[in-house]
């Protein structure tokens, strides 16, 4: 009995309720744009990429967040994995925001007039755009996206290119589910598993094997969020055309060709800006 008393006493002293900052989700700016920057990349180009996001964010009252590759305990895993803790990090820094849009540094926001929420994220919009009964991995994987999901229950918006799910441009809703999803995705087992395409294949894996993830996922047409200016676009709707929100050059970071590849697009953006003035 004394033992119990002793133990209980010990625990109660340690179990004081900690003072955690309580921030209501939705109290902050609605969207945070997250882009992980490679610190070794060309500084001028990095500046332009940041500017591209900052201008868009300013226009719609969003926030931006630019961590570096080295900020996270990746160990020996490929640096592309850093997008997962970066999203979690952004949620820690801006706990009041609702949507966190991860956009690879290889992508440019081409149509700043599009407001992301009304364009994509309202429940009715999501219900309209969601592609249901689609094999998660094209062309014919057994696991297909769920039908009859409610738009307000969606926590994760993603697109599919020709080869499969692509995490180059995704939106995750802040909340408990996001913590679960990001932590499970970042599990060291997947990082060390040698998936051929690192975090994209790990994503495909957890989406296919775990119903609690698939049930929160909305697959939307690729050009809504992640149109490809080059690379293996989804044959249906993946190719970039004018007025799309995003133009992505998926392979350019690996090949270090982003500045040159993106040059014509930067020019268009510059022209737009002049037109606006």
């Amino acid at each position: 009995m004394f033992w119990l008393v002793g133990r209980i006493g010990r625990v109660e002293t340690g179990a004081a309720i900690p003072k955690l900052p309580k921030v209501e989700i939705g109290s902050g700016p609605p969207v945070v744009i997250v882009t992980v920057i490679d610190p070794k990349a060309d500084a001028v180009w990095v500046k332009r990429i940041k500017q591209n996001r900052d201008e868009y964010a300013k226009r719609h009252g969003y926030l931006t967040f630019f961590p570096g590759h080295g900020d996270y305990p990746l160990g020996t895993s490929p640096v592309t994995w850093s997008k997962v803790p970066a999203l979690r990090h952004a949620m820690t820094v801006y706990p009041g925001s609702t949507f966190f849009w991860y956009l690879d540094s290889t992508a440019l926001i081409m149509n700043p007039s599009i407001e992301l929420q009304s364009h994509l994220l309202t429940p009715s919009r999501l219900e309209k755009l969601m592609i249901v009964n689609e094999p998660v991995v094209p062309p014919d994987s057994v696991i297909k996206t769920f039908g009859n999901l409610k738009g307000d229950r969606i926590d994760f918006v993603v697109t599919q290119d020709k080869e499969g799910l692509t995490p180059a441009s995704i939106v995750v809703r802040n909340g408990e589910w996001a913590k679960y999803f990001l932590d499970a995705w970042f599990d060291p087992i997947y990082r060390s598993y040698n998936f051929q395409k690192a975090e994209s294949h790990a994503l495909e894996h957890i989406v296919q094997w775990h119903g609690t993830i698939l049930a929160k996922l909305a697959l939307v047409p690729q050009n809504m969020l992640n149109a490809y200016a080059s690379g293996p676009a989804n044959p249906k709707d993946g190719k970039y055309k004018e007025d799309d929100l995003v133009a992505n050059f998926p392979g350019c970071a690996k090949d270090h060709t982003c500045p040159t590849e993106q040059k014509p697009f930067f020019d268009i953006l510059d022209g737009q800006r002049k037109g606006d003035d």
Partner: peptide
């Protein structure tokens, strides 16, 4: 202790409730 984690996850006792 990883900084990218939110304070509740870093807390030794969660939210303590």
């Amino acid at each position: 202790t990883d900084e990218y984690l939110d304070p509740e996850t870093r807390s030794p006792v969660g939210d303590g409730k």
